[in-house]
Design a protein around this nucleic acid. Structure first.
Lengths: 185, 185
DNA sequence: TTAAAGTTTCAAAATTCTTTGAAAGAACTG
DNA sequence: CAGTTCTTTCAAAGAATTTTGAAACTTTAA
């Protein structure tokens, strides 16, 4: 019979892999989810070496992954008195993590996407207005509106934990100017 | 001076790349977003060859990408009378696309994740109940609760276009049994 | 200051993902 | 039916991402 410790580790890995998959489906590296899960289940702070051993991850990868997890605000670095090495613990507030990750993600691409769509729109506006260019322009502006509406909705969600996307339909049904002017209201 | 067509194409590519980036940040291949965008801006149905030419994508990649886009329900295949080849057009209803994609994503991993977390939980329940195993068990059950709450919220969002994640805090504050039993209520 | 312990960096290796293009397969046409 | 056109498949190539591990760096303690 294997010592209880082994079974506990096995359960831990099973859970870590499951959450790793979830995290991967949302566009992060699987190992980030696995590390966070090990810390979350452990409860107490663990050293990088300890985590690396349990998950079979090299010291280099651990260092990089832990830095990244901290950037996303889902893992904290802590020091224990008398101990030389650094320890890490998981953030346990799910909402905090979700909102931070959403906010960070948005921040990373929002501006560049809007800037490019605006540039595309400007290019089309500079063209002689045929039916074809007017149509394309309308479509590009719909994309831009969508991006703005989605960003606004996401911001609201982060602030209030609540979203209502009912107005999304407007992006299909109404002339684009009407939708966009409503944004501030 | 370049003919207007070139500028229109340039604008199209600019927008396609921008939306490609958005889509990539949400875990899909960039080319899927680029193809959808070209179709969306074009409005009318285009052939695979036509799209491939505009985006510089091989016929093989086009075929695979278009199949995938159809699986996600964001592009439709259409036939034109008298034309031998197939044409494609973009779904334009943003909400339809978002909800379908969320639903499909969830379907793909939900069961396997829950099954593994339940297995981990069962393993820990089979262990002699020390403080350590009880703690780990609590944490694994919190993860399972979180996954269930998130899935329920996502399902609700897809149905009603509305989410309220206020209860998320419960996953941190309350004993886990209380949170999970509340689920049905 | 030196040694020890621990962490970070980064080039190379390994792995995974994506694309290509040729061949096979369908579907239509005369 | 044979030829033509178009689509799909898939093995190999290419690209991108991730991981490793050794060297460089940092911090602490004596």
């Amino acid at each position: 019979m294997s010592p209880p410790n082994d079974i506990q580790r096995q359960a831990e890995l099973l859970a870590a892999d499951a959450i790793g998959d979830v995290i991967e489906h949302w566009g992060f590296r699987r190992v980030l989810g696995r590390i966070w899960t090990v810390l979350f289940i452990a409860g107490g702070a663990l050293s990088a070496a300890e985590i690396g051993e349990r998950l079979q991850v090299s010291s280099g990868a651990m260092s990089m992954s832990l830095t990244e997890l901290q950037r996303w605000g889902v893992v904290r670095r802590v020091w224990k008195p008398g101990e030389r090495k650094e320890f890490f613990e998981a953030e346990t507030d799910f909402w905090k993590m979700i909102s931070k990750v959403f906010a960070e993600r948005e921040r990373l691409i929002a501006d560049s996407v809007r800037e490019r769509l605006e540039r595309a729109s400007a290019l089309l506006e500079g063209l002689p207005p045929t039916d074809a260019t007017r149509f394309s322009l309308d479509r590009v502006e719909r994309l831009l509106s969508f991006v703005i509406v989605a960003q606004t909705a996401l911001d609201g969600f982060i602030k209030s934990r609540t979203v209502d996307f009912s107005r999304f339909g407007d992006l299909v049904r109404f002339p684009i100017r009407a939708v966009r002017s409503r944004r501030g209201a």
